[in-house]
Design a protein around this nucleic acid. Structure first.
Lengths: 222, 222, 222, 222
DNA sequence: ACTTAACCGAGACGGTACGTCGTGTCTTGCC
DNA sequence: GGCAAGACACGACGTACCGTCTCGGTTAAGT
């Protein structure tokens, strides 16, 4: 959940009655949350997001109608449209963006970046775009993107790069954040601005430029 | 103009009677467009965009009211809110992003990138963010950003890089588009995702990494 | 209701849960219509119609504002401004136009016609004028006037005249519609064209002319 | 003209240079009024009034467009839409409503009333309806109807009735205004409310009822 | 022929109201 | 107490006309 504003502590979980409180915890009175509604809402969110334009064009009204759900139910569990989109996004978050370990940093990075580009080009790209677009006016949303999407991957990326350093493929003391932004920044830029072709070979070109450049001379040494 | 939807060929120009068509072109009949209104609208757009949140919070209703202008007048000249924002922005930050010519590519690029970062960090950054965000669901808008903002600058950037090649600072045969996306991509990424600090020294770091890397070994040679 | 355009069968009734469908009929789901809003709207309609000029000067925007009601709510229940006015009017002047039963046709008719003239001369007359005026371009509206105002009264008028026939005051076989239009037509004419004085004694004069004429010689006998 | 608001005294006349002032009157300087435009405007007014709904639905914008005329030209010569409609109406005013002189009041009246009904049923009826409808919120308009249409005919009607009195067909001392409103009121009522059939034989029925009634017993004598 | 003055078309202007859509909240009866 | 249904107050949308204005161009009468 992007933001926990619900009456129940574990709202949003698949099954609220198996929450943290364990065996001793008593289920609250009243009808339990409908898991069917929750999933239907998330499904409709993704569907409408892919169908029509972006974040701004997506309306709660339409989601509720498409999901055969009362608007109240949406508002009961998600405080804003942004939270809903973030939730829907993380549901669709991908296993396929794990980093391989081929023994070569450049190959590892390049392979993962190719997969990212493939996702950006698929209709899941729309979701990311909507998230980044919506995030420009809703800090919560961009934060969700960072926490749910960016950081988990970046953590793996650090490890991948570190392996390269350990193997001597990259110079020690490199500013890893700078390197990673230099690797991924161009992809995001072409994805969002669409000023130039974004195909998978672009990943190789960037890797070659950045990682070769690193090898040659440490950027922090100047 | 993002989109020419007006009856008149040169709508949006400062002075419609000095349009493209030259000496032979006659002013169309009817009352000419009010330049005062046009500027008032652009001014109010910038003002309100800076005051309130982002693109979604900006309403044409409010712009018209603030500019003492009928809503009709706004709609007469700009097809969408997006087009209006694009126009307002490009009017706003055109000069200060010109490239210097200091005799050193790295210094030229770095200086210009610093200025870009400065704009991104100022409240005019909101404008760019709004534009890029809006562009994710409105192709016209992102196209406007490219044509009115990106390409004019990139043209100058090509020249700056070419000077570097001519002076032997950069290897001939470099893929200039790749280089430029590698230089600017990280800035856009940090600006939009806000996962890391974006200060002016970041420009220097990127330039050092990319341009030194280039010097060392041409990326296309592998 | 001038026109049933609502989702619910008995929209417009004071209490939708006691509609036509009787005991078996179940209330539709969802929040029930706000009776307070409905009355507030009708009240504001009457108020504004009396204050300002005629039908054309009356705006739904103003009604909604005066009634502290969303414009949507007005549009939800009344398809047009005309329908709203018709509803407001028939709500307004229903009782005082009943026919008396004094034992004399002429007196009965004359008394009721006097009351009609009194209404026409009051500021409720504006309402009728607005209705008839609007009805000239909106068939629905004039139909509403007929069904909600004219026919109910005419039904009583038939009975009043019939009593006169039964008592021998009027000849049997009279064309009652012709008689009634001859009685009321002059009033409507003076009311709408305002070419001559319309005071209550006019009712007596018409009655004398028409009903005496009838007595003398049946119009259908020629 | 319903209202004289023009710069020139005789504006609205077919040919301003042959105005009241005669041979000695000098034409004012400047371009004279375009008679073609004037007629085109009046023609378009009638056309649009017949095509679409009533007075309220008629827009100056549409008239100017249909007449290939600048809006300014309309506003220059007619202060309000009402004035324009009244002017258009009087242009189409009819010769066919003159009263015959057959030697019988009842026949004379009946014939003329039949012609009026025929006009009401034709598409010129729309014009009268629009005028009466518009007149309910614009006193100028109903006044125009009275002065241009009602009074001229009523003047003739007085004479016709007087002939009847002179010939002994009607009792002396009758209230002619009451009689005329009783004759025409029912026609106007059916025309505007459309609650009953309005065909030409209705004229005969009314005449029979009213004029026979008069003969029988003077209405004022009671 | 040239000036003067008013008219003309076109159409942009600041406004008002339109009727619609989506917001987030509320009130029902049912589960 | 969750849930669907849907009415509610509200705010912005984009459009249609309003009546006014400002252009370039036209049409005469008076120089």
């Amino acid at each position: 959940m992007v933001q926990n504003h619900t009456r129940r502590a574990n709202a949003g979980n698949a099954d609220p009655r198996n929450g943290i409180e364990g065996a001793a915890g008593k289920r609250p009175p009243g009808r339990p949350r409908s898991e069917a509604s929750r999933q239907s809402i998330l499904r409709s969110t993704l569907k409408l997001l892919k169908q029509h334009g972006g974040f701004a064009e997506l309306s709660i009204e339409a989601i509720a109608a498409d999901a055969n759900v009362g608007k109240t139910t949406v508002y009961r569990w998600w405080p804003t449209k942004a939270a809903l989109v973030a939730d829907a996004f993380s549901t669709s978050a991908d296993q396929e963006l794990r980093f391989p370990d081929t023994g070569s940093v450049q190959r590892d990075m390049s392979l993962q970046m190719r997969r990212l580009i493939r996702i950006f080009r698929s209709n899941r790209g729309k979701l990311v775009a909507a998230l980044l677009a919506g995030g420009q006016s809703d800090p919560k949303l961009i934060q969700a993107f960072r926490e749910r999407f960016l950081w988990p991957r970046r953590k793996q990326a650090y490890q991948t790069l570190q392996r390269g350093i350990d193997r001597g493929e990259l110079p020690a003391g490199s500013d890893l954040d700078l390197v990673l932004d230099s690797l991924y920044g161009p992809i995001y830029m072409r994805f969002l601005i669409r000023h130039d072709k974004l195909d998978e070979s672009f990943a190789d070109d960037i890797c070659a430029l950045i990682l070769n450049g690193l090898k040659c001379r440490p950027p922090r040494g100047n």
